[in-house]
Simulated assay, not measured.
Amino acid sequence: MAEVVTTRREGAILEVTLDRPKANAIDRSTSVLMGQIFETFRDHPELRVAILKSAGDKFFCAGWDLKVAADRDEVNAYYGVGGFGGLERLRDLNKPVIACVNGIAVGGGFELALSCDLIYASDHSSFALPEIMAGQLAASAAIKLPKRIPHHIARELLLTGRWMDAAEAHRWGLINEVLPREKLEQRAWEVARQLAAGSPLVIAAVEETMRVAEALSYQDAITRVSSRHLATVDKLYGSDDRMEGARAFSEKRAPVWRGR
């Protein structure tokens, strides 16, 4: 049997490919596996960036596998360390994940893309949250979408289940860029290499600061940062890497990040 999730590595970049024909829908065992993969990515000291993509040209991910939806045990099952798709609830992930969306991202597939830091999509991609017609709550989307796009657009998508094409998603600022399908992966890798060349300590501090600040006022958030209350910020402020950028600039060379 073919592997439903495969990985390949290029230096500090990990590419994760969902390959579960026909629609790349995710069942419990696939979700658990994805959680294990992203947990390993999170904890691996040499990995800095991940790209999440899928096989095929029609579906990025159809979300939860509806073939098992009527199975109460499957519905209430443990979906792994990261929650659905391995990313929805993965704690302390301070490394960027790039969603490379080629095709339909529907239901949990849309939510999976929302769990990533950057979203690049092919021009034939589309997005929808039809859970209202399946008796389900798109909980992750209900929390995240109103923070990403205008409130009433988010509410409309959640309450009507209507489709949104890539151009509209880009117009609302939901995705970073729309590309021809033949250029999509090339662009995702280009961005991944750019991120991998940056300071891993700064990237981790940005990730944690943005995540924590979502639930705080500006004053509370800036106080936590300036007092080095956040672990990633404290590590950055006390690191050799903090001075490396300035030294590299003055010496007219590329910085060498050591993560310490």
Rank of each mutant, 00 (worst) to 15 (best):
R155K: 11
M243C: 00
A204N: 04
Y78D: 15
W64D: 09
E185F: 09
E177Y: 06
T30G: 05
A50L: 03
R242M: 03
V206I: 14
A105R: 12
V5L: 12
H170P: 04
G135P: 08
R247G: 02
G56S: 06
V81L: 15
Q186Y: 04
D92P: 00
T17L: 12
V225S: 02
V81Y: 15
A134P: 00
I104Q: 11
E156F: 02
H152P: 00
A2I: 06
Q194L: 15
A69F: 01
H151D: 07
I98K: 05
P180L: 08
S239E: 02
V256T: 15
L159A: 03
L230R: 07
E88K: 12
L216N: 00
A55I: 01
H44G: 09
L129E: 09
K252F: 15
A169H: 08
D92K: 04
S217L: 02
G83V: 12
L236N: 07
R148Q: 10
A141K: 05
K53I: 01
A167M: 11
V68E: 02
A154C: 03
H170R: 11
A134L: 12
A221W: 02
P130T: 12
T7A: 10
E88T: 13
P130S: 10
A113D: 00
P150A: 04
G56R: 05
L47N: 07
L137T: 11
R211A: 12
Q186D: 07
P146F: 08
G245L: 07
I153F: 02
L66N: 07
T232R: 14
G107D: 09
W64L: 14
H151F: 08
A55V: 03
A231K: 14
Y79C: 10
V5I: 14
S250E: 15
V202L: 14
G108E: 07
A139M: 10
S126G: 11
L184N: 01
I143K: 13
S250L: 15
K144T: 11
D117I: 00
G103Q: 10
I203L: 13
L87R: 12
R89C: 04
F38H: 11
R211H: 06
W163S: 05
R162M: 06
L47I: 09
